[in-house]
């Protein structure tokens, strides 16, 4: 079981590393945004850099969770690959847990890269006591957004259209969040919407702040919805 899990992680990692676009958007692009925004507003403002650090990480967690898990699993169903996986003498969960762990590894690499760049460019590194918050934020956030992505992917909308909907959800969540600046200070309503959506609670976890009940709600709802939708999935020829 453990050997299969390890091989599954490796399997998904090499597959992911060969999708050049995915590597750019999950590794290089967050660093790029961190450098640009940090240079615009963060010079000599350690507080902003600290906030941007977790903001960029939060954005990457949301995009990885939404785009790299749900649509991928849906693709396995659409291509029929899932039928082979279900017939192999292994627990199919180990295959998909491998997928999730490979994404966690990718996010830990982003965290490492952000730390290095942050130290070199802005002379800022997150305090050691925040490391647990950052790792917890990565795991909880990925879990939450993965189930959100799965729920959208399996919501019964036409295959191929779900990516448009996930894009809409991602940018909606991102632009109302406090990833790059405190939105609530500019517009209270947008700020309130952002607080009700799942990214701000994840940012609270990453920043070591209290995140309230809303995170629990966002953790439970997609799982329940997905389990209901998943039971309804049928193969039809």
């Amino acid at each position: 079981m453990f050997k299969i899990l390890c091989h599954s992680i490796y399997f998904h990692l090499i597959n992911y590393l060969r999708i050049k676009q995915a590597v750019f958007f999950s590794l290089a692009f967050p660093i790029f945004l961190f450098i640009v925004f940090g240079n615009i507003w963060g010079l000599n403002q350690q507080e902003y850099v600290a906030s941007l650090f977790t903001g960029v990480l939060g954005m990457t967690i949301a995009s990885d969770g939404l785009f790299a898990i749900g649509p991928v699993i849906r693709e396995y169903y659409a291509s029929g690959l899932i039928k082979y996986l279900r017939k192999l003498p292994m627990n199919i969960l180990s295959y998909f847990i491998g997928l999730i762990i490979s994404r966690v590894i990718s996010l830990l690499v982003v965290l490492g890269l952000l730390t290095v760049v942050s130290k070199l460019m802005f002379n800022f590194t997150p305090p050691s006591e925040q490391i647990i918050n950052l790792i917890a934020g990565i795991v909880i956030g990925l879990f939450l957004f993965a189930f959100l992505g799965l729920t959208i992917s399996f919501s019964g909308i036409k295959y191929g259209s779900e990516k448009g909907l996930i894009n809409f959800v991602f940018f909606g969540v991102l632009f109302t969040s406090n990833c790059f600046y405190p939105v609530g200070q500019f517009n209270r309503i947008v700020g309130a919407i952002g607080d009700a959506l799942p990214l701000n609670p994840i940012l609270h976890v990453l920043r070591g702040e209290a995140s309230g009940f809303i995170i629990v709600l966002w953790l439970i709802t997609p799982i329940v919805l997905f389990s209901v939708l998943f039971r309804r999935i049928k193969f039809v020829r």
Binding site: K3, H7, N15, L88
Partner: peptide, 25 residues
Amino acid sequence: ILYDHLPLISLLRVEEIIKYYCTVH
């Protein structure tokens, strides 16, 4: 089993897929 569609992932090498199946079996 061989279905009418194949159990292959386009970005992987032949040996990588065979090795994965070796681990599973």
